[in-house]
Simulated scan of single mutants.
Amino acid sequence: MTVALITGGNRGLGRAVAEELAERGMTVVVGARDASAGAEAARQLGKEATSVQLDVTDPASAFYGMVVPAYQSSKAALNNITIALAKALVDTPIKVTSVCPGFVQTDLTPINRDQAPLTAAQAATVVATAAVLPDDAPSGTFIDRNRAVAW
């Protein structure tokens, strides 16, 4: 069984990725700040989906204060984390891939909703593709809709 934890899986791009991966037969765990929103998203997904509350901003959360480099770093540093994790996990079946889904219609900012050309479902395709790379695919890469992007 392949399991995918989708942070922010209850709405926007995360929700679209969760839907696509569930359709591809993966067991999806919806990570959400709001436990009830995550549970509802998992219920709607069906297919053995479950949820977990992941809120690094809530002092009552088990994840409060957790140092999560991806949240605290620039895009350049995130690229470095991708490479470092890929090297650390080289002897495991785990793939580490940075993904640029494109300019997506989400609630991140008003401009996204109004001007972005891609729906969350369209952008989810590239993220889902990264989640199901074949065993012989390289780890530590950066991809967009079209191809691997040179570092």
Results as ranks from 00 to 15, higher is better:
1 M>C: 07
1 M>Y: 06
2 T>Y: 02
2 T>H: 08
3 V>R: 08
4 A>W: 00
4 A>R: 02
6 I>E: 09
7 T>H: 01
9 G>K: 07
9 G>W: 00
10 N>E: 08
10 N>L: 06
11 R>T: 08
11 R>N: 08
11 R>W: 00
12 G>I: 00
13 L>N: 10
15 R>C: 03
19 E>D: 13
19 E>F: 02
19 E>V: 14
21 L>S: 10
21 L>R: 09
21 L>M: 12
22 A>S: 12
23 E>I: 04
23 E>V: 09
24 R>K: 07
26 M>A: 12
27 T>F: 05
28 V>G: 11
28 V>P: 04
30 V>P: 03
32 A>W: 00
35 A>Y: 00
37 A>H: 10
37 A>I: 03
38 G>V: 01
39 A>S: 13
40 E>R: 15
41 A>R: 07
41 A>W: 02
42 A>D: 03
43 R>Y: 06
45 L>G: 03
47 K>E: 13
50 T>Y: 00
50 T>V: 03
51 S>C: 06
51 S>R: 04
53 Q>M: 13
54 L>P: 06
55 D>T: 04
56 V>L: 12
59 P>K: 07
60 A>V: 05
60 A>S: 13
65 G>N: 03
66 M>Y: 12
66 M>W: 13
72 Q>T: 14
72 Q>N: 15
72 Q>I: 10
74 S>L: 09
74 S>C: 09
75 K>T: 15
76 A>P: 00
77 A>V: 12
79 N>R: 15
80 N>Q: 15
80 N>E: 14
80 N>R: 15
81 I>N: 05
81 I>P: 02
82 T>A: 07
82 T>P: 02
85 L>K: 05
87 K>W: 06
88 A>F: 04
89 L>P: 05
90 V>G: 10
90 V>K: 15
90 V>E: 15
91 D>H: 12
92 T>K: 08
94 I>C: 09
95 K>H: 15
95 K>G: 12
95 K>N: 11
98 S>D: 11
98 S>F: 06
98 S>A: 15
99 V>Q: 08
100 C>P: 03
101 P>R: 12
101 P>E: 10
103 F>S: 12
105 Q>M: 11
105 Q>R: 15
106 T>C: 11
107 D>Q: 14
107 D>F: 02
108 L>E: 01
109 T>F: 04
110 P>M: 10
111 I>F: 09
111 I>R: 15
111 I>P: 01
111 I>M: 14
112 N>R: 06
112 N>G: 08
113 R>D: 09
114 D>T: 14
115 Q>K: 15
115 Q>N: 13
117 P>H: 04
117 P>D: 04
117 P>L: 02
119 T>Y: 01
119 T>H: 04
119 T>V: 05
119 T>W: 01
121 A>V: 11
121 A>K: 13
121 A>C: 03
122 Q>E: 14
122 Q>I: 04
124 A>W: 01
124 A>K: 06
125 T>D: 08
126 V>T: 10
127 V>I: 12
130 A>P: 06
130 A>H: 02
133 L>K: 10
134 P>D: 15
135 D>H: 07
135 D>F: 03
136 D>I: 01
139 S>C: 00
139 S>H: 01
140 G>S: 02
140 G>T: 04
141 T>Q: 08
141 T>N: 03
141 T>Y: 01
144 D>I: 02
144 D>M: 02
145 R>H: 12
146 N>F: 04
148 A>C: 06
149 V>R: 07
150 A>K: 11
151 W>D: 14
